[in-house]
């Protein structure tokens, strides 16, 4: 338990450092495009505006390994979209920390198979839903899928 505690403690320090560095406030949203599933990332960008409206955010920070997606996010959103900067190693640490402690009201990591309790990947494999629904209902909690007008 000591090792795990130390690990999330590092995550805690990292988050406070990143928060201060980026000037993240309570009304910000944070989107981490993990690259685990490209379609999920792409829909996450497509519905980013709906998400920020739902959480009443006044700015959004996006982390992505792909510059193209960041540009799309900027175009898709009516509020300021800023780049969230961290290394892949820091991303891993921040996610582990998030799995233990929900450190911020509006963080979205686009993982669908991690951690092991995350069942979104399994839901996708099972069929009956696609990546668009995974993003709108699972990651963003929009309660509807605006593109399908289905709930």
């Amino acid at each position: 338990m000591f090792r795990e505690t130390l690990h999330v403690l590092k995550g805690n320090f990292l988050w406070h450092y990143l928060k201060a560095r980026h000037g993240i406030g309570e009304r910000s949203a944070l989107l981490i495009l993990t690259g685990e599933n490209e379609k999920v990332d792409s829909y996450a960008v497509q519905y980013l505006q709906a998400y920020v409206q739902r959480c009443k955010a006044d700015r959004v920070y996006v982390w992505t390994g792909q510059g193209g997606l960041f540009e799309k996010a900027r175009k898709a959103c009516s509020i300021p979209v800023r780049r969230f900067r961290m290394t892949e190693k820091q991303l891993r640490l921040l996610f582990d920390y998030y799995c233990f402690y929900r450190f911020f009201p509006n963080p979205v990591f686009t993982y669908i198979n991690q951690p092991k309790d995350n069942q979104l990947g399994k839901l996708l494999l099972r069929g009956g839903v696609d990546e668009e629904e995974i993003v709108c209902l699972g990651l963003y909690n929009l309660r509807i899928v605006p593109g399908k007008n289905k709930s």
Partner: peptide, 14 residues
């Protein structure tokens, strides 16, 4: 409490 599992809004879906 296991907030990383995001299935909640699939309850009743489809």
């Amino acid at each position: 409490r296991v907030h990383a599992n995001k299935l909640e809004w699939f309850r009743g879906y489809n």
